[in-house]
Design a binder for these strands. Structure first.
Lengths: 337, 337
DNA sequence: CTGAAAGCGCTTACAG
DNA sequence: CTGAAAGCGCTTACAG
């Protein structure tokens, strides 16, 4: 059984399909009574206008494409939730694609978005490598980057001030009396990591301290490597009294590793994260971190994209507000230098 | 600047647009040389066939709709990752929608999927209330439920044997010597909760124990209420020596609450979860739980949906394998009855 | 192998 | 207020 088309409704209502189209679009050009009748029939029939047919003539799909490295990353998931919520309010649908950080996949995703004529694209926390950036900017679709910036004038972005937040968080550690503060970053060179490292470095230098290369480790933003980095760090002499993890996932692994070694947080070593993912307040002890309003950032990205689609000129680099959240994973070091 | 259409390519290649269509579809009906030439031109131009136009004539959209309660739930995120990965292999795109457990939203989502003519729908871990179920089954699109079943012959499902896994997990607790085992479920009546409760109850009864109503609490599947339930449970006398949490999120909150009260897991009370979310191995102590192969389940759901779309007759209730994972959050009770 | 024609289901000037 | 007509960009019998 085929789906009813606009012509079927027209026949049932004894009007032309043009009139059905107008009535259903809520045009004021149609007699209220006929409009009512048509709507009633459409309702009963369960008629659903074809988005494809519509988009063919309007050349807008009311669809946006969202690429994430992986939706299994809680940061991406929260952001996508915000994006979809806002998209729903604007009657946009979202097509979700995981790039898995694979270049071939990134290319395929963009191609698919082009074929589907999405009205715009949001790219979340990917490293946006050189080739990807080129693919993206070659496309004429509006693009908003989440947690990333790009010099192209065609690409907008939403992010917090990672540098400032990181500097403040490091300042918190310094104020507690820490002098040997390690940094566990991300080897994939995400922009957010670079900026956080910059803030860490800047805070240290302002306090008259140097960055000790041995205290700077690189992970992959996931718990396991956070644990490995913590293990290496705790084997050092003198070992650091605090570990600044570039994100909460890294901190999660670091804390587990430290507990496994019979050491205590924060007595033996303070730990900080970044993001304030849902689990941060439930770790043992609860994690000091920087809250990123991920859901809100997703909404902001969608809103600027919609503005762009409507021919508006939104702010180029939208800034969300990060906030240091002090919990119990940080305390004064036992032994002060 | 408008997008190039098939006619533009036809003009550039000095052939009819029919031939372009065939060449790009890889039809054997076209001269290899012309085909090559056409493909080359299409490539250079960055031509992208319109999915909308194609789907209008083929009446297939190569798109599937996925509804989750919220993508911020790690279970849903993992499942969606599996779905999207598999969809990508079959050249399907996925439209993601969050229902937020709001009936109006559920209705709107299904309507939108119908307008977009998705080839099928996957519904993940929602409680699929009466009205939703009706909306869903009225639609003629193939539907696969993840973590849920439905008596309709038109709706397929993928889930693990929750009853058996739960029974086995409870058996693990009983074998350790526990006799006062609490259960923290979900007040929204998810089918998975009902089945897990059934397994818990069955194991208890097989051991000659009764379910003590005071040891059965209802949360909402999230950490905060897991914590509240644990607090109430620990105030009981005699208090339970083990708490079976119906999912890991609940267990996460319960463990934090217990730690906050100065009690220790598993010395003072054993805790079990369900799902084996990414953080389960990083809690302090690591969580004993039931692993659900979420990503694989997502893939299975997509595969059965694709089979359905191709007119096949996949198994109605596909069963994935759950597995009890014993970590350190469970141990023999200190004081044995 | 190739092209002309029809048609998928809509929207929207255009004419009345 | 309403309808007939054109057209969006494809695919696919049909005829050659």
């Amino acid at each position: 059984m085929k789906r009813a088309s606009i012509k079927d409704i027209a026949r049932l209502a004894s009007v032309s399909h043009s009139t059905v189209s107008r009535a259903l679009a809520g045009s004021s050009l149609v007699n209220p009574d006929t409009a009512d009748k048509i709507r009633k029939i459409a309702d009963q029939t369960g008629y659903r206008p074809s988005a494809a047919a519509r988009s063919l003539v309007t050349s807008r799909s009311a669809t946006i494409g969202v690429v994430v490295t992986t939706i299994a990353d809680p940061f991406a998931a929260e952001a996508v939730l915000g994006i979809e919520d806002a998209a729903n309010e604007h009657n946009y649908s979202v097509i979700l694609a995981n790039s898995n950080a694979q270049p071939e996949r990134e290319v395929k995703v963009v191609r698919s978005f082009e074929e589907r004529r999405v009205d715009g694209i949001i790219v979340t926390s990917s490293r946006v490598g050189a080739s990807y950036a080129e693919t993206l900017s070659r496309t004429r679709m509006p693009i908003v980057l989440l947690n990333n910036q790009h010099p192209s004038e065609f690409i907008h972005s939403v992010m917090i001030d990672n540098f400032a937040a990181s500097r403040e968080l490091t300042g918190h550690l310094l104020a507690l009396g820490h002098r040997r503060i390690a940094y566990v970053g991300d080897r994939y060179g995400y922009q957010s990591d670079t900026e956080r490292y910059g803030g860490y470095r800047s805070a240290l230098e302002s306090a008259g301290l140097k960055v000790e290369p041995q205290y700077v480790m690189l992970g992959d933003g996931k718990p396991e490597e956070g644990g490995a980095a913590a293990a290496a760090l705790m084997a050092l002499k003198p070992r650091p009294t605090a570990i600044f993890c570039y994100n909460d996932m890294t901190a999660l692994g670091a804390m587990a590793e430290i507990a496994a070694r019979g050491l205590k947080v924060p007595e033996d070593v303070s730990i900080t994260g970044f993001d304030d993912l849902f689990f941060a307040k439930y770790t043992a002890p609860p994690l000091t971190t920087v809250r990123q309003p991920m859901r809100e950032m997703g909404r902001m990205a969608l809103e600027t994209l919609v503005l762009l689609c409507d021919g508006g000129e939104p702010q180029h680099n939208v800034q969300a507000r990060g906030e240091v959240i002090v919990r119990q994973s940080t305390a004064a070091p036992k032994e002060v230098l």
